[in-house]
Design a protein around this nucleic acid. Structure first.
Lengths: 326, 326
DNA sequence: GCACTATGCTGCCAAATCGGCAACAGCGAG
DNA sequence: CTCGCTGTTGCCGATTTGGCAGCATAGTGC
């Protein structure tokens, strides 16, 4: 049997709210909701464009199923019974999930467009996002994705002043306007070629690293703030360091064989997987991990497109085995 | 047309989860969920006790309605498509509202029992709870209600160590284990007979009250903590006071005509409404209101019966015009 | 007081939908 | 190659849904 293509069911128009409920819910619940709203069988029938007898019967059927009256019939007026109020209150909660599902499916089908604005720290921007975005773009061809690769601190700035919807980066101290919706701790260590003098050492420390030519991030890259106290603690007089503002440059320097580079394994995992570099976590007492995270603004719901991307990213990272992740 | 009694639909047994979904949801959604769970049409059909052809047709119908495939048919295996994952994820959120509705309705019908344990400060316990509980008991005849009338401080203690489910009382500083799920600010003032010397004064102050015989609550009643600074501020030497540990006693003392009693209008509203007492709010600068509230434990969901009672109480107080309420 | 208009409900029936049975095509294992 | 499994399709009976006509009752206006 041939595999059914995903576009073999032509429906060019979005589902209206009324049609949507018809797809998912029993007519008895739909008509109950309408009657509960209007407190009149005939008015509900008019709004639903069906005969009032159909409404009466469906409501009666629901009352039979539940074993209790949902309306109090008072002469020619209806009132919700206590059971009717309970059902009406809970039934309201059915709308959002189904509307969300249909909206997302319509976005998936390209019937609905939207935009996602992303800011990412460089190491994430060059390592994970291309694959994530490619995967996402295949699913949601009609969504615009705007990506900025910036320092971690600027990721947060852009979130706070709403220039972007979602941020990916490293988190030292997030401000209270930001929620960390996903976090993963990554070890800090040294990256070097397999034949580098440090490659064979067990229990590598910063002090041992400083005995060799060393490349580190400049202060404006967030990892530097984390490692700075350990640099200063490990040598009375720091030897000359190479300080760069690019994770990619750190990787290239390590590939040259002369330098070891202090970083997390993100940014070099291609080379590590290929065996051209090795990653040795530092064993200094008290050295924290570097916290990678997906960031959103606190207290504000994401619009639909960013929300879909966010769910996608969260699933992606939940299942991704980050190199060296704890 | 006669009014349909609420018990005219005999259904003696609770609805199972399977039957429940049949009542509310379209078969196509039910069968989609089953297939998404088992990733097999035949297995889903077995679990649903229907023919596999029915499942195939219903799923196809849903795919037609949504305009996209929900499953990837791979030879003789199924996989959820991206659209199928979206629908499955959202469809999960339909279960809770309907189960909650049916559980509550079954409790309403007396098919399901439960208990609610309440602690209330005395002023609430004698004024509002009797009517609330009576009203509730009429709707939910099979629920047990256990009421303790205790000082406000003990209301909180009993909540914290889980001896009660819901508390009603006055809140100075709730501990962090307690959520205030409903709050209403009530003025603090003096209660006295209409012919009392203070009854005719405008802009009544604590100082003026202290010029007359005065009854106040003992320190173990929460209102005392609130008024204490104002007592001390209003007289260099406090005159003799009557100090009691019962709101009812305060009311009785006021009824005697000799004393004015410092309290909120709760506890005396019967007498105030009947005209036998009057309530005069104190106008001292900075005097806070007394915060009445419904309290539950923080972070813990209520069991079904307490949750129903809680909803009932919240609705009751939302619509109740508390005497003197701001 | 009567006529008119409104309500919710019931009998009857046609149309639509659901689900079962039988059979099909295709795939994987032995 | 055979057997057992999968999902799907044709056909048909059973069930459900909804429309029409009419009923009983209530409320309003003249």
């Amino acid at each position: 049997m041939d595999q059914r293509p995903q576009t073999d069911r032509p429906r060019e128009h979005a589902l209206s709210s009324g049609l949507l409920s018809r797809v998912f819910h029993q007519p008895s619940l739909i008509y109950f909701n309408a009657v509960a709203t209007h407190l009149s069988i005939r008015e509900a029938a008019r709004r639903l464009n069906i005969a009032s007898s159909a409404v009466t019967r469906q409501v009666a059927q629901l009352e039979d199923a539940l074993g209790i009256a949902l309306f109090l019939r008072e002469k020619r007026r209806l009132r919700l019974s206590p059971a009717g109020e309970i059902l009406f209150r809970h039934a309201r909660r059915l709308t959002a999930p189904m509307e969300a599902a249909v909206s997302e499916i319509e976005m998936l089908r390209g019937l609905r467009s939207g935009s996602v604005r992303i800011a990412a720290a460089e190491s994430v921007g060059i390592s994970f996002l291309p694959r994530l975005i490619t995967d996402f773009g295949r699913h949601y061809p009609r969504l615009n994705i705007d990506v900025s690769v910036v320092p971690s601190t600027e990721v947060i700035e852009r979130l706070v002043d709403e220039r972007v919807d979602i941020g990916f980066g490293f988190i030292a101290k997030p401000p209270r306007q930001i929620d960390i919706a996903f976090r993963r701790d990554l070890p800090i260590g040294a990256v070097m070629t397999p034949d580098h003098p440090l490659a064979g050492r067990r229990n590598l420390t910063m002090q041992q690293c400083l005995e060799q030519p060393l490349a580190v991030a400049k202060p404006e890259i967030s990892i530097r703030e984390v490692i700075e106290p350990f640099l200063r603690r490990s040598a009375t007089i720091l030897p000359p360091l190479v300080e760069v503002d690019s994770i990619r440059m750190l990787v290239e320097l390590a590939l040259g064989g002369h330098y070891a580079s202090i970083m997390t394994p993100i940014g070099a995992q291609g080379e590590v997987e290929a065996g051209r570099l090795v990653f040795r976590p530092l064993q200094d007492s008290g050295l924290p991990t570097n916290r990678f995270g997906i960031m959103v603004r606190a207290g504000a719901a994401l619009h639909l497109a960013p929300a879909i991307f966010f769910d996608h990213a969260k699933t992606y990272f939940d299942t991704l085995i980050l190199p060296g992740a704890i």
